[in-house]
Simulated scan of single mutants.
Amino acid sequence: MASLLPEDYSLDRMRRYYAHFSSTPMTPTSKIRTDAATIGTTTEAARLERQRKAAQVAEDYYDLVSPMYENGWGQRFHYTPLTPGLSISDSMTAYEKEFARITGLKKGMRVLDLGCGVGGPARSFAQLVGVEVVGITNSKWHVERGQALTKEAGLEGQVTFVQGDYMHLPFEDASFDAAYAFEALCYCPDPTVVYKEAYRVLKPGGLFAFADWTMTDKFDVTQKEHLKIRNWIEYGNGVTRMPLVQEMRDGLKKTGFEVFHEEDMAHRSSPGPWYYGPAGNVRWAHDWQDFWKVFQMSPLFLFVVGIAYRILVFVGLCPKEALNVMDTMWYCCRSVAIGGKMGIFSPIYMFASRKPDGK
């Protein structure tokens, strides 16, 4: 059970993240606690303050949860529509193949992965399509882990990693054939900033595609329940401002991209919904590996493990802060599952576009 905490666990690491969502200032000696009231009813002023520190919020979040993501979900930190007869992992591969086909990725292209995580999709595209991928992430841990996994896969010369800010790309103009992102641009308070940077580093005719988190057109800002779920999603996943679909459309158009494909890939999921995993619903598990992966996110499992952790904390065999990490993981899973079921949220809304020739 100690694997719930990051390998280089520290109270400072946890304080850095929880401080972004606390209604009171947090000092080096403050008690770390999940402030449910603040999370569910966060004010616009508080959200704006977090947006000003969006890069730091995202870095603090992924420093805290990335080891748990990899242990529980795998090396590819993204959701996927289910494909009939395939496991979650194989569905991801099928989804990535379709993403590459729609986008128009071709062998030999130099491609930029914006917010690459530990490089799961980058290695998939390198193997499936034969592209050269450069991944950028603001997390040092992602770079180090991504490099290790890429070496294991024998793709060192084909997939490389750069630690940096995708809002200020450290690359020359017109230096890539294509750029893409999986569930990463939502961490920028204004994704249009990243669109502009992608536009700059793409060659004329270059391709730009992403599948990202969004509050769908069904999201109603006047509905308190909708706002609560949005706030839960933001807290549980380190997002400071969930974008809207219309904002994505407007941002791409404003930047100058020509959109040739738009689709909520969630609607392709069959026979079960994309959110059956975070919902902990084992009904659609394809095999025992999927069953265990999904069961670990089920309310029953989280309840039993919560009791076990409380016992370990009580007898001094586990730091009490593990309970806070469990709370965060509850919000991470439950929020997206509820939002998906309500139809107000999708993590795989796709746009594919092109930089005009001659620009």
Rank of each mutant, 00 (worst) to 15 (best):
residue 105 L to I: 04
residue 244 L to Q: 11
residue 317 L to I: 08
residue 257 F to R: 08
residue 17 Y to C: 12
residue 86 L to V: 04
residue 65 V to P: 01
residue 218 K to E: 14
residue 307 I to D: 01
residue 270 S to A: 13
residue 109 M to I: 14
residue 22 S to L: 14
residue 200 R to P: 00
residue 165 D to P: 01
residue 231 N to I: 09
residue 237 N to I: 06
residue 178 A to Y: 09
residue 256 G to K: 14
residue 212 D to L: 09
residue 193 V to N: 04
residue 145 R to W: 01
residue 135 G to Y: 01
residue 84 P to E: 07
residue 226 H to G: 06
residue 255 T to E: 15
residue 63 D to C: 06
residue 40 G to I: 03
residue 335 S to I: 09
residue 172 E to G: 04
residue 170 P to E: 06
residue 196 K to G: 00
residue 205 G to D: 11
residue 224 K to E: 13
residue 108 G to Y: 03
residue 326 M to E: 09
residue 263 E to W: 07
residue 164 G to W: 02
residue 25 P to E: 15
residue 131 V to T: 10
residue 14 M to F: 13
residue 41 T to A: 14
residue 306 G to C: 11
residue 234 E to P: 08
residue 172 E to R: 14
residue 357 D to R: 15
residue 335 S to D: 05
residue 19 A to R: 11
residue 86 L to K: 13
residue 284 W to F: 13
residue 143 V to Q: 03
residue 307 I to Q: 05
residue 204 P to D: 12
residue 23 S to H: 14
residue 337 A to I: 10
residue 13 R to V: 07
residue 343 G to Y: 12
residue 55 A to H: 00
residue 187 Y to D: 00
residue 46 A to M: 12
residue 316 G to I: 04
residue 86 L to I: 09
residue 236 G to P: 06
residue 317 L to T: 12
residue 226 H to S: 07
residue 33 R to Q: 14
residue 229 I to D: 05
residue 91 S to W: 10
residue 228 K to W: 05
residue 217 D to Q: 15
residue 224 K to G: 03
residue 9 Y to T: 02
residue 290 D to F: 08
residue 317 L to E: 10
residue 195 Y to T: 00
residue 209 A to D: 05
residue 168 H to Y: 08
residue 309 Y to A: 09
residue 353 S to V: 08
residue 132 E to M: 07
residue 270 S to F: 12
residue 65 V to C: 07
residue 125 F to P: 00
residue 200 R to W: 06
residue 112 L to I: 12
residue 138 N to A: 11
residue 214 T to G: 07
residue 180 Y to N: 04
residue 161 F to L: 15
residue 41 T to I: 13
residue 240 T to S: 13
residue 101 R to H: 09
residue 272 G to W: 09
residue 67 P to T: 01
residue 161 F to D: 10
residue 8 D to N: 14
residue 313 V to R: 05
residue 227 L to H: 01
residue 54 A to I: 12
residue 332 C to G: 00
residue 183 E to H: 02
residue 132 E to C: 08
residue 187 Y to P: 00
residue 163 Q to M: 09
residue 264 D to V: 13
residue 163 Q to V: 07
residue 322 A to I: 07
residue 76 R to D: 05
residue 193 V to K: 04
residue 353 S to W: 12
residue 334 R to H: 08
residue 44 E to G: 07
residue 37 A to H: 12
residue 34 T to G: 03
residue 356 P to E: 15
residue 338 I to H: 02
residue 308 A to I: 15
residue 137 T to F: 07
residue 280 G to M: 06
residue 148 A to I: 04
residue 55 A to N: 02
residue 108 G to T: 12
residue 142 H to A: 02
residue 267 H to Y: 09
residue 215 M to W: 04
residue 307 I to P: 00
residue 208 F to S: 07
residue 175 S to G: 05
residue 183 E to G: 06
residue 164 G to P: 00
residue 193 V to F: 03
residue 132 E to R: 07
residue 215 M to P: 01
